[in-house]
């Protein structure tokens, strides 16, 4: 078992209970998707695993998180990155004023030697050729899709075993979403485990083997990705398809989503 989230509870600012008894597991080399509406607690789940919640005044107050058999809950991000656990935050957080290549160099700060950094940069360029073309460009001026590729490439620099990636498709044009997910599929092939948080359920379930649906800080449904894809509730509320396979308007779904409760 690579990752084991065991009955985890997260509290922000000592009072706001956001995750309530979350359980998840994943095998090395697999890919899981975590789905759910806005505010469900998806980002919080990733932050709890990577340790970023600490810097946001959050804390795992009960339960445990194990990565490769070691407890990682409430550990520092630094130590988790060193273990090969890296969090790609939502919002494509590039280092704006640096070139693409320097972003990658910084991403490789855990590597031992400059030679190793060079080597990995070449690997990243092979995997994401677009970045090689952009190497001298200032990251802040790249398009959204290019920035998303860059933050993925930067995460790869740290030689990760598991990448936690938060809403990689957010705000991207459909073609770009495809590009980005193609890269994620490549990562899987190279043996890296992926934990994808997405609102684009379709795209996420296509890459993932297993999916979890979260609502109000609880996992309300989980299953094999293809099973979830067939599930009526998921289809209706996350894929925006009704039984006849028609796509509902976004507004209808959104309206529904707010009232619908998965427990029931």
């Amino acid at each position: 078992m690579l990752l084991k989230v065991n009955n985890v509870e997260v509290i922000y600012n000592d009072v706001i209970l956001v995750l309530k008894g979350v359980n998840m597991t994943m095998e090395e080399g697999s890919c899981i998707a975590l789905l759910g509406a806005n505010g469900a607690g998806k980002t919080t789940t990733l932050a709890a695993i990577s340790g970023i919640i600490k810097s946001e005044d959050g804390k795992v107050t009960s339960g445990s998180i194990e990565f490769d058999g070691q407890r990682v809950d409430n550990q520092s991000v630094e130590s988790n990155v060193a273990r090969g656990l890296i969090h790609v935050m939502e919002g494509r957080k590039v280092l704006q004023h640096m070139t693409v290549e320097k972003n990658l160099i910084v991403g490789g700060h855990v590597l031992k030697s400059g030679a190793e950094v060079k080597q990995r940069i070449e690997n990243v360029y092979t995997l994401i050729p677009r970045l090689a073309e952009l190497r001298k460009r200032t990251a802040g001026y790249l398009s959204g899709g290019e920035q998303q590729m860059l933050v993925i490439g930067r995460a790869l620099m740290a030689n990760p075993r598991l990448i936690l990636i938060d809403e990689p498709s957010l705000g991207l044009a459909p073609l770009m979403v495809e590009e980005v997910f193609k890269i994620l599929k490549e990562l899987r092939k190279s043996g890296i485990s992926l934990f994808i948080v997405e609102q684009n359920t379709q795209a996420a379930l296509e890459v993932a083997d297993y999916g979890y649906v979260m609502e109000n800080g609880r996992i309300v449904m989980d299953g094999e990705a293809d099973q979830l894809m067939k599930n009526e509730d998921v289809r209706e509320f996350y894929l925006g398809l009704n039984m006849e396979g028609e796509r509902k308007s976004y507004r209808d779904v959104k309206h529904y989503k707010r009232r619908k409760r998965w427990l029931g």
Binding site: V77, V88, V94, L95, V106, V110
Partner: peptide, 18 residues
């Protein structure tokens, strides 16, 4: 560059384990 990264954005640098 690591220092420049944390100069640019504490949160981003932190998320990379800097």
């Amino acid at each position: 560059l690591k220092m420049t990264a944390s100069a640019e954005d504490h949160q981003v640098a932190l998320s990379m384990g800097i």
